[in-house]
């Protein structure tokens, strides 16, 4: 079994935005896509997905529409809005910067000893 990673606080929203940006998805689809993208290494509490989706929709970052799923059921599909796209870009950029800073700290070579 691959080593599992806990979700860093506050990153779920960004990950959802990213997942949805790759094409319209229903809630379960978001979960599957995140698992697929991370190769199952990311632990996501299924129940916490929906409050996040609702929050994003309420903020206007994603839109929703009822449609038919691949298994012929009625499902709610989410798509990224223009505002969501901007937000994703900004968050991704700041995340990258953050990573770089953390990485540079961790890769510092001790001067003595």
């Amino acid at each position: 079994m691959k080593k599992q990673v806990d979700l860093v606080q506050g990153t779920l929203d960004m990950l959802i935005l990213k997942a949805v940006s790759l094409g319209g998805l229903h809630g379960y689809g978001v979960l599957l896509r995140l698992q697929q993208l991370t190769g199952g290494r990311l632990q996501i509490q299924q129940g916490s997905l929906y409050p996040a989706l609702y929050r994003l929709e309420h903020r206007g970052l994603i839109g929703s529409e009822w449609g038919e799923s691949e298994n012929k059921r009625k499902a709610k599909f989410y798509t990224l809005t223009a505002a969501g796209r901007k937000q994703l870009k900004a968050e991704a950029a700041s995340w990258t910067r953050f990573l770089a800073v953390v990485a540079s700290i961790l890769s510092a070579i001790p001067e003595e000893s």
């Binding site: 229903h26 809630g27 379960y28 929906y50 009822w66 799923s69 298994n71």
Partner: peptide, 16 residues
């Protein structure tokens, strides 16, 4: 009712 339907769909699909 929308919320019920959406969560229901999630669980049903996962069960499938």
């Amino acid at each position: 009712s929308d919320m019920d339907a959406e969560l229901g769909f999630h669980i049903e699909t996962y069960v499938d």
